[in-house]
């Protein structure tokens, strides 16, 4: 018998690298890392077939903490990098990690278009309503009255609503997770990876250093009272009216993922020169 030996699925631990996180002890991102590695193990993937792409910020440090292929790019541009990678290499499982600053502020435009494009990516945004790497400035999801050095007395700006934006822009799967529940987060990430097209998982991930009051999110986060819908209108109403603490899959669309035209047979590049040649039509 020459049947290949079936390797046993790897454990979550085997998806972690030996490089140690710089996050503050107590940070929700530790839990997200645990959830990501657990989800990859549950999906029976291998690290070399997974790429984790990120931008800049606390959350974006994740790639090097995994044993997968990683891409730690520039601030705000993780989605384009992941888009290029997935289009060029559809065989890879591509996860994108971001935060509320990286993903919703500097990278906001790419968020809209990644949702629209509906490429088979899983976008995990660790949202802590603050810029951590630059020492606590307000982000697009920060409450208007949260006072900081850069915005004393608060920004006075209303919060960005990432899930509604994702829905309106065409994301195919929308979920909210809470880092206080790593197993639940892992399960949501797993579902997101399995769902075709662009899957968006917003993870409430407290910043214990600049927003210690977020430790109380534990009391507020709860499973969403109803299951996911595939009706964008219903999903819109639910997302617009929820208090931001309903955890679970909130929308599961049926849109076909983005497909790039593919030639059945590859021509030699030289054949393209025929279009420039000075030959008569039909000669």
């Amino acid at each position: 018998m020459n049947a290949p030996l079936q390797a046993a699925p790897l454990t979550a631990k085997e998806f972690k690298s030996d490089y140690k996180p710089v996050w503050c002890p107590g940070c929700g991102d530790y839990s997200v890392l645990a959830a990501v590695t657990k989800a990859l193990a549950n999906l029976a993937l291998r690290p070399e077939n997974v790429a984790v792409v990120s931008g800049i910020g606390c959350s974006s440090r994740i790639p090097a903490y995994t044993s997968c292929y990683g891409f730690h790019g520039v601030h705000g541009r993780s989605l384009p990098a992941a888009t290029g990678l997935k289009v060029a290499r559809p065989d890879l499982t591509v996860l994108v990690a971001s935060g509320d600053g990286d993903g919703y502020s500097i990278g906001g435009n790419h968020f809209l278009h990644a949702c629209r494009r509906n490429i088979d990516l899983t976008y995990i945004v660790m949202d802590n309503h603050v810029y951590g790497m630059t020492k606590g400035q307000p982000s697009p999801t920060t409450e208007p009255d949260w006072s900081s050095k850069l915005a004393p007395g608060g920004t006075g700006l209303r919060e960005f609503h990432p899930l509604v934006i994702a829905l309106a822009s065409g994301a195919n799967f929308i979920a909210r997770a809470f880092s206080g529940d790593p197993n639940g987060t892992a399960a949501l990430i797993e579902q997101a990876v399995r769902h075709p097209g662009f899957s968006f998982v917003e993870v409430l991930s407290p910043c214990v250093t600049f927003r210690p009051e977020q430790r109380a999110w534990k009391e507020r986060a709860r499973p969403a009272p109803v299951g996911p819908t595939d009706d964008p209108a219903r999903a819109a109403r639910r997302l617009m009216t929820d208090d931001g603490f309903n955890i679970g899959v909130l929308y599961q669309g049926k849109r076909a993922p983005y497909g790039v035209p593919v030639a059945a047979k590859h021509a030699a590049p030289e054949s393209l020169a025929a279009g420039f040649a000075l030959k008569e039509v039909g000669a």
């Binding site: 891409f71 790019g73 520039v74 989605l79 384009p80 990098a81 290029g84 278009h113 590859h266």
Partner: peptide, 23 residues
């Protein structure tokens, strides 16, 4: 496409440069 590749129209140049870096 004829030679077996793919092209994406990006949302801006910040995206296009990062797409090609990713690819």
């Amino acid at each position: 496409v004829k030679v077996g590749g793919a092209m994406v129209q990006a949302e801006d140049e910040l995206a296009s440069i990062n797409m090609i870096l990713g690819a």
